[in-house]
Write a protein that binds this DNA or RNA. Structure first.
Length: 473
RNA sequence: GCCCCCAUCGUCUAGUGGCCUAGGACACCACCCUUUCAAGGUGGCGGCACGGGUUCGAAUCCCGUUGGGGGUGCCA
């Protein structure tokens, strides 16, 4: 009888959703989909006090953003590890009853002291099995330790092949703390068993602890799941991504205006690659082609520059309507530099095609169109000084202004005015427009100029030119 | 200390003994286009960590060295 494959994703609640976790979640989700299996979301929280509902909601929201949908029939959870504490303890007691675990009353200090006496120079030496045969029963302050059998433990890993650990190098580890509470290593195994987990796909950092978990599975008499340890994500120093140093929160990228599809696609190119000569592919193709065995073995650098390049690509691929819709949260935000009442969707709709090819992040959009919604442009002083440095700047701008006073107010006519001034002074359009651009938009770079000027209207345009001229003279 | 993992352009990767004069993507540079900035087009720069084997033949298999990372808690 074929068993339904069950993949568990087990983030710890830390107040944010790690990009590395996002990639692992994607792996699990894809695998569950491919095998008509189930994606089980379990929140790792052996300690109840860690169980912050807001944090859990953050994880659920971030997963949903990535398309890992809590309403899908392939999705189960979230489950809370702490809710099963009784089962964890029960399993530990079973192990004790069978002699596969034993109590020990040594404190951490005692263990270090013994190690020093016995081992000599080695400063880091583990527990030596002192209480193995002392026949201690449970009691306050006594921990329950697993009796590591002799021999070797072989972990069959779908990514790495078979990895052998000599049991002699694994100390008798703790199952139950002195206060009777289970440690996460045990909790995870018991939860995996009770939730009938068949596949464990997680980051490589867990590989060295896997033989311990596998020994617990064996001791409990249950066949261990299929393991897969995928490489970690690292920073430019090649260190595991950490909240302290690195920008690791998925939420943060979402707020900056990274598109979910871009994030998913980029994450999937880390440690794996779709077939063909392009890395930007549909999630359908990824779901089709992804295989654990073809996942790389080495850590991958999380390159924000490349993520943004992917995002720019995805933004350009949006239809105009989709792009406009996607921009709204940033345009309507109170962080936008204009009065909310000044924002006009119709105006933005007109200029949107010009900004779509010019942004990498959606959060860059407001600064590209602010001059249309603010009373006066937000002036970049350096740009102003530079644009008005040439001696022809003021003269030509006056001529342009005078032309604007009488010409038809369309992009073509406006352009013709500026061009004719350019001919008169033998200046190319590219140079000549600089002072005008700064006067109108406040900046030296931005979308093409004449369309927005036409949208702004004659009165506002002339006023801005005069303000700039007054500032210069 | 001990254990485990890893090693192809700067970065992410393709590559599973001859198709490799090592392919693509991001970044970078140049040129074209151009109304600034983008976008787009064309081209360029740039890599198998090192040393030994095995083989007619090695980026690919084996051993070693070096270098990186991770684990080793009464954290998760």
């Amino acid at each position: 009888m074929a068993q339904t494959p069950r993949y568990r994703f087990a983030p710890s609640p830390t107040g944010y959703f790690h990009v590395g976790g996002a990639r692992t979640a994607l792996y699990n989700w894809i695998l569950a989909k491919q095998t008509s299996g189930v994606f089980v979301l379990r929140i790792e929280d052996t300690d109840d006090s860690r169980n912050n509902p807001q944090w859990t909601q953050g994880i659920v929201d971030a997963l949903a953003w990535l398309g890992i949908d809590g309403n899908d029939s392939h999705f189960e959870g979230p489950y809370f590890q702490s809710a099963n504490a009784a089962l964890h303890v029960e399993a530990a007691e079973k192990l004790f009853a069978q002699g596969k675990a034993y109590y020990c009353d040594l404190t951490t200090e005692d263990i270090q002291k013994r190690a020093k006496e016995l081992g000599g120079q080695n400063e880091r030496q583990g527990y030596d099995g002192y209480s193995r045969d002392r026949g201690l029963g449970p009691g306050p302050g006594r921990v329950l330790r697993f009796r590591v059998p002799s021999g070797a433990t072989i972990v069959q890993d779908q990514v790495r092949g078979s990895v052998e650990f000599d049991n002699a190098t694994i100390e008798d580890f703790v199952l139950l703390r002195g206060n009777g509470s289970p440690v996460f290593l045990l909790a995870n195994v018991v939860d995996d068993i009770t939730q009938c987990i068949t596949h464990v796909v997680r980051a490589e950092e867990h590989l060295p602890n896997t033989p311990k978990q596998q020994m617990i599975w064996d001791a409990l008499g249950i066949t261990p799941p299929s393991w897969a340890h995928v490489p970690v994500l690292v920073n430019e120093q090649r260190k595991k991504l950490s909240k302290r140093r690195d920008k690791v929160a998925v939420e943060q990228y979402r707020e900056e205006g990274i598109l979910a599809e871009a994030m998913k696609n980029y994450l999937m190119t880390l440690g794996w690659a779709p077939s063909g000569d392009t890395e930007i592919v549909s999630f359908e193709k990824i779901t089709d082609e992804f295989k654990l065995v073809s996942v790389n073995h080495s850590p991958a650098f999380f390159d924000i520059v490349k993520l943004q390049a992917f995002n720019a690509d995805y933004i350009r691929a949006l239809s105009l309507e989709e792009f406009i819709t996607a921009c709204q949260p940033w345009l309507m935000s109170d962080k936008a530099p204009w009065q909310a009442s000044e924002y006009d969707l119709k105006v933005f709709t007109e200029i949107a095609p010009l900004v779509q090819t010019r942004v990498q992040l959606l959060q860059e959009v407001p600064s590209m169109v602010d001059f249309l919604f603010c009373d006066s442009p937000i002036l970049d002083d350096a740009a102003f000084v530079k644009a008005f440095a040439p001696e022809w700047a003021v003269t030509t701008l006056i001529e342009i202004r005078d032309g604007f006073k009488v010409c038809e107010f369309t992009p073509d006519a406006l352009k013709a005015v500026v061009e004719s001034v350019g001919e008169k002074h033998s200046l190319k359009l590219g140079k000549l427009q600089a002072p005008l651009r700064v006067a109108i938009t406040g900046r030296s770079v931005g979308p093409p100029l004449f369309e927005p000027i036409a949208m702004l209207g004659r009165e506002a345009t002339l006023k801005r030119i005069d303000v700039a001229l007054a500032k210069k003279i």
